[in-house]
């Protein structure tokens, strides 16, 4: 140690040298005169740090970490819940869709059946009407034909009577009728 100046440091060093033999060797670490001081303040420091950690810092950080863990767990559970809910909703939707489809099918089938029944009924009614009309027509034709035959008979009788009369024979009506009837039948 070359002491060339008299700075404050050097003065202190010289004062220290008085009570520290090791100081001469240049190692302040081996100046036993300062050990008591260092150990005392170290003890104070460690006690202060220990109580700060024990009473404030460590419980607080532990609480923060626990709270975060709790939040994460809760969030995961909530997510699980929501997922289950979403699945339920999807299932409900699918079920509703299937139900609606089935109902639609049913309605279609029912409507088809109804329409068919109505159609059948209408057809039957129309058939009946048609056959009734046909029967009526046939009856009318038969009537007309009968009327026509009668008219022919009457005309034939009259004609025959007139013919016979013009021949100068007074034939009675019964004979003429019988003759005409016999002819017109054939």
């Amino acid at each position: 140690m070359a002491n060339t100046t008299h700075s404050a440091e050097e003065v202190t060093r010289k004062a220290d040298e008085a009570h520290g033999a090791a100081e001469a060797a240049g190692m302040p670490q081996l100046d036993f005169g300062t050990f008591g001081n260092q150990i005392f303040w170290l003890a104070v420091t460690l006690i202060v740090i220990f109580f700060i950690l024990k009473k404030i810092a460590l419980p607080r950080i532990a609480a923060i970490l626990a709270q975060r863990q709790g939040t994460i767990t809760n969030d995961l559970a909530a997510a699980e819940d929501l997922k289950a809910q979403a699945q339920d909703a999807e299932e409900a939707y699918k079920k509703a869709l299937a139900d609606a489809r089935a109902e639609a099918q049913e309605i279609v089938a029912a409507t088809k059946a109804e329409i068919k029944a109505e159609l059948d009924e209408a057809t039957a009614k129309a058939d009946a009407e048609i056959s009734a009309k046909a029967a009526e027509g046939e009856k009318a034709i038969a009537e007309i034909r009968a009327n026509a035959v009668e008219s022919i008979n009457a005309v034939a009788k009259d004609t025959a009577k007139a013919l016979v009369g013009s021949m100068g024979i007074d034939a009675d009506a019964r004979t003429i009728t019988a003759a005409v009837t016999a002819r017109t039948k054939g």
Partner: peptide
Amino acid sequence: DQFEVKPLFGKGEIGTFTITNV
């Protein structure tokens, strides 16, 4: 020199309870 233990106030002896740079 950087390892020297010095009183923070004044230049007296370093006792157990002296306030030093330590």
